[in-house]
Amino acid sequence: MTALLDWDDEYEAEPPRQRPLARAALSPGELPPAVQAAVWRGDQLGTPTTKVVLTGFPNLDKELPGGGWPAHALTELLQPQPSVMEWRLLGPAIRDVVSQGKDVIVISPPKHPHLPGLCQQGVEERHLVWIQAETPAERLWVIEQLIKANAAGLLIAWLPQARQEQIRRLQVCAHSCDSPVFLCRPAAAEHEPSAAPLRLRVRHAPDWELHVHLLKRKGGTHDGLIKLPSVPASLASLITPRLLKPSTLLAARQKRAVDARLSDVPHVLGRSSPRPPALRVPTP
């Protein structure tokens, strides 16, 4: 009985309570650190918890929310001519995804992917999945199913025709996708409303560059162009330093052409007019 009572006393004894740590007083309008870290402000580039894939261009990464191509969201690439600039813009990210053993899925590209060129970019053929859907309805269905299945490390779809509510539906599905999803659309779609959180307009530049204009991003607006070096991998070892700046050669050629045209035009200003020949009067 004595042992039982001793056990009961030990069981009923309560451990000493620890006093809660004193919290620092907050000034009016100040948020606790945990709450402040979870709040996104409209003038900031997204939140630090966003999962991204690096673009491979440092000057572009610093202008994108989270510092790269965002997952859990759509990214629209707008360009005048399809299937030309998106491979050069997304090439570093594709190479990074493939190096991790993940697949890259392309849906209805207007032109056949050039496999030798992609291999030079470090993209193995076995990690490239090409799906050809003919009608807009088929494309939308395939894109939605792949996003829901979270089946790719990176997904690129060419969607020239899409309504606002269709883009919004894909964006809702993309919230549960762990990989970046890119929609390649014509430049004319720039003035159409879109639920995609990130929209970029891309165009060629003379000096082997891509000029990117951020039309929409999560954060403050961006004015101006982002210049990205984009020499094709197959030509990088063949182009001479002089040909890396074609704009300089073109400017010099135009200057020579203008100088040649001006040399053929008689100058009126700064030159005295020639005297007419003197008339000789014959003597009788």
Results as ranks from 00 to 15, higher is better:
49 T>W: 03
36 Q>G: 06
92 P>S: 02
260 A>S: 08
58 P>Y: 03
89 L>T: 15
147 I>M: 08
239 I>P: 01
105 I>F: 05
278 A>G: 08
42 G>R: 13
129 V>C: 02
40 W>L: 09
223 D>I: 15
200 L>F: 02
273 S>L: 08
211 H>P: 07
8 D>G: 11
90 L>A: 07
106 V>Q: 02
180 P>G: 08
64 L>I: 05
183 L>M: 09
143 I>C: 04
42 G>S: 12
230 S>N: 03
240 T>R: 08
16 P>I: 06
104 V>M: 07
62 K>C: 09
25 A>F: 10
196 A>L: 01
151 A>F: 09
152 A>V: 03
94 I>L: 03
157 A>K: 01
29 G>Y: 02
136 P>R: 00
72 H>S: 10
253 R>P: 05
272 S>M: 10
17 R>H: 09
104 V>Y: 06
237 S>M: 02
111 K>Q: 13
156 I>W: 01
258 V>S: 10
49 T>G: 09
150 N>V: 05
267 H>P: 11
281 V>D: 10
135 T>D: 07
42 G>E: 12
194 S>K: 07
217 R>H: 00
102 K>S: 08
124 E>K: 13
33 P>W: 02
133 A>R: 01
225 L>H: 11
104 V>N: 00
146 L>D: 10
251 A>D: 09
7 W>S: 12
94 I>T: 13
226 I>W: 00
124 E>G: 15
252 A>M: 08
32 P>F: 05
112 H>Y: 08
78 L>H: 02
3 A>M: 02
254 Q>N: 13
228 L>F: 01
233 A>T: 15
79 Q>S: 14
149 A>L: 11
199 R>W: 00
201 R>K: 15
75 T>S: 10
126 R>I: 10
104 V>P: 06
91 G>N: 04
31 L>I: 11
149 A>N: 06
92 P>R: 05
62 K>W: 04
267 H>Y: 04
106 V>R: 04
192 E>K: 11
261 R>E: 04
127 H>A: 10
76 E>S: 08
180 P>W: 00
74 L>E: 01
156 I>C: 05
41 R>C: 01
231 V>I: 11
211 H>V: 13
268 V>T: 13
179 S>D: 01
47 T>P: 12
60 L>D: 05
201 R>A: 09
6 D>E: 09
50 T>F: 01
278 A>H: 05
102 K>I: 05
5 L>S: 12
29 G>L: 00
21 L>T: 15
15 P>D: 07
53 V>Q: 05
